[in-house]
Design a binder for these strands. Structure first.
Length: 685
DNA sequence: CTTAGGG
DNA sequence: CCCTAAG
């Protein structure tokens, strides 16, 4: 059974801006081909589901009153109660669903490989149908085969056909167990969660018809209509990172959010603009964190310290958060959920991690919902950081269903998976300038998150909270389960940086909290599995857009820059893949050296992490590499052919300065397939 | 903001 | 990759 690598698909809650990702590493290429269609569908499904969840949460948010009721992750017993108690409260609902979903999901996966009951009523037809059809297309040959749909953090989905015997279920099972064993997956109790719970949860969802329908309708269309294949292909495209075709397709798929970059001419600025637009545009769809007020350092720390008992702590947090929400301000702890676990007693954290997660989710939802309600109040206190989170990406999901399954069951399965992930297996990551901020104990100020600075670079991610297992899974041929999301993508690459980046100085002692493990795992995973595209850190998950009017922050802090120096982290190292090199070489062949910006635009438009300076530097190193003996070369070997081209292009362009108009023209490169037709060439003539 | 180079 | 000087 080969598991295809899942493609990353930028997916933020609802059409969201995707973070550009570079093509995956060559290594994974082979694995990644296949059923992309289904992926898309699944993706869509996922998106729709996420949307539903969000909406539901929003709608019901107002109604939640009971704080004490949440025992989110507590597991089995509490599930039903919660359901009843909190069914109305969207937040609770989320949690509950989440945990239930997971459990059910897991259990089902384990127990029934073949059939999934259609607990869920049909949510949306088009989507599922699509998915099934596509799957069937792929798998049509063998009925016994199973179709696996893998939804990554990014929201990308990859489906695979597994040979006759389906192992997915098995493997999944194993994973689940593993997870349980580790306590990583709070809500992942197979036993506790049974179909019933899942059903219930599903019903809960169904109860809010509006949500469901609207979402599915809304979301699916985006991708389905737009050749999904192509969209995905982009990710796989190893050769050209930024090939226009891909971009175009891509953009088509995700019009609104997708890559702002595609649309922006001047990269960053435009990007920001777009972000803002998007933010406003999707305000409703994607819950935002508005007016999140972060109390600074002291406040945060104390805030945490005060709640030691995990359970209580969680509740308190939730409670406070809700409160905050009500006030139209969200409190974001620097540590975030993971942080809590970290700073406090680890063990407890471990066990209750799930709870935390759930809480977190609730908080998020609550936030968004509340945000919607009160956008106005901006308290611009000098020491507060305000921002909004546009949307979150749904973490990777791995879905395995038999071909013979019904659309309805598929939907249900996806729903459950999504619910499970959202409800129990997520943790929040904070990205600053594309880098993961690992140190939970640092204050925002120390981290460099001040209301005045870096707001644009501030991001949040939702990552699978359960980790530890992932690495093995990933590395092994096991299908990437939820935890393993490379993208990490989350971690995907971008995220990875966290590990490297973490500031040695300030980094609090290795708390070895889940969070840390996770991250490290992610890194590991990503390194093994994918490589490229994970971009940023963005990785994965969700993207938080700073779009808010930071300007609103009136007071300028005195210390704004204060700690910046500390923050300054080196960008994570992202070795160029062969495909990237190929793209670079090709671009340079055509454009010549000295036009790095053009090269960037031409071939790396979508690779946010590659700046023209990076490209220039890479070229520099390539030239050097080409000149040294193969034995002296390090890193991923670059095909000699490319190196030859590098030298040829280098020498060619060295002779004809770009600036020169006439001369180079005549000789124009024979070396290159595509002579510089661009600017200079033309001009020269 | 881009380039070009050194570090 | 970073940093910086120079257009």
């Amino acid at each position: 059974m080969v598991f295809k690598k899942r493609l990353d698909h930028g997916f933020n809650g609802f059409r969201v801006p995707a973070i550009p990702r570079a093509p995956r590493s060559v290594r994974r290429r082979g694995l990644c081909k296949k059923v992309e269609d289904s992926q898309i569908c699944a993706f869509e499904l996922l998106a729709s589901i996420a949307g539903k969840l969000l909406q539901e949460s929003e709608s019901s948010a107002s109604s939640n009153a009971s704080e004490g009721n949440d025992h989110p992750a507590s597991g089995k017993g509490s599930v039903k109660q919660e359901q009843q108690d909190e069914g109305k409260s969207f937040k609770a609902g989320w949690i509950y669903q989440g945990s239930c979903g997971e459990g059910s999901f897991a259990s089902e996966m384990a127990s029934q490989n073949n059939s999934h009951k259609c607990i869920l009523k049909e949510i949306s037809h088009a989507d599922s149908d699509e998915v099934l059809e596509r799957n069937s297309i792929v798998n049509n040959s063998d009925c016994s085969q199973k179709v696996s749909i893998n939804v990554t953090d990014f929201g990308k989905i990859s489906s695979k056909v597994e040979g006759g015997s389906t192992h997915f279920g098995e493997s999944f099972d194993g994973n689940v167990n593993e997870i349980e064993r580790l306590n990583e997956f709070g809500g992942f109790k197979t036993e506790g969660a049974n179909t019933c719970s899942s059903k219930d949860s599903m019903e809960l969802f169904l109860k809010s018809p509006n949500v469901i329908k609207s979402d599915s309708n809304v979301e699916l269309p985006l991708c389905q209509d737009l050749a999904p294949d192509t969209c995905f292909s982009r990710y796989r495209n190893d050769v050209k990172l930024g090939s226009r075709d891909d971009d175009e397709k891509f953009s088509r798929c995700f019009k609104p959010s997708t890559k702002a970059k595609a649309f922006r001419s001047p990269p960053r600025v435009a990007n920001r603009r777009i972000r803002k637009l998007l933010t406003s545009r999707y305000w409703k769809a994607a819950p935002k964190l508005k007016d999140c007020e972060l109390s600074r350092t002291d406040g945060l720390k104390q805030f945490y310290r005060k709640r030691k008992p995990c359970c209580n702590r969680q509740r308190d947090v939730l409670f406070k958060r809700r409160k905050m929400f009500d006030q139209s301000s969200v409190v974001i702890s620097d540590g975030g959920f993971s942080c809590e676990s970290v700073s406090n007693s680890p063990e407890k954290c471990m066990t209750e991690d799930k709870n935390d997660v759930a809480t977190m989710l609730n908080g998020a939802n609550g936030v968004s919902s509340s945000v919607l309600g009160h956008q106005a109040p901006f308290h611009s206190k000098s020491s507060h950081v305000k921002f909004s989170i546009k949307s979150f990406r749904v973490p990777e999901l791995f879905i395995d269903v038999p071909e013979t399954t019904t659309v309805g069951s598929l939907k249900r399965t996806v729903m459950e998976a999504v619910t499970a992930v959202l409800g129990g297996g997520l943790r929040v990551g904070v990205l600053l300038q594309g880098k993961k901020v690992r140190n939970d104990n640092r204050t925002l100020m120390q981290t460099g998150i001040s209301h005045k600075d870096n707001m644009d670079s501030l991001g949040f991610t939702l990552e699978p909270s359960t980790v530890q297992i992932p690495p093995p899974l990933c590395s092994s041929d096991l299908p990437p389960l939820i935890p393993c999301d490379p993208s990490q993508l989350l971690t995907r690459s971008p995220a990875n940086p966290a590990v490297e980046i973490s500031d040695p100085l300030t980094d609090p002692p290795p708390l070895t909290n889940l969070g840390n493990h996770v991250e490290s795992n992610d890194n590991t995973v990503s390194s093994h599995i994918d490589t490229i595209d994970k971009t940023e850190p963005d990785s994965k998950a969700l993207v938080a857009l700073p779009a808010m009017s930071m300007e609103a922050l009136a007071v300028v802090p005195l210390n704004e820059k204060t700690r910046h120096s500390e923050i300054v982290q080196r960008r994570t190292r992202r070795p160029f893949s062969v495909s990237e090199v190929e793209a670079l070489v090709h671009a340079v062949e055509e454009l010549g050296t000295g036009r790095w910006r053009d090269v960037k635009l031409r071939s790396f438009e979508n690779a946010d992490h590659r700046t023209y300076v990076d490209l220039k530097d890479k070229w520099k190193t390539l030239v050097h590499t080409a000149r040294i003996s193969p034995q002296q070369r390090r890193g991923e070997p670059v095909p000699q052919e490319l190196l030859d081209r590098v030298l040829a292009a280098h020498s060619y362009w060295s002779q004809r300065p770009v600036k020169q108009h006439g001369k180079h023209q005549s000789g124009t490169l024979k070396i290159m397939e595509t002579p510089a037709a661009d600017g200079k060439g033309v001009e020269g003539i």
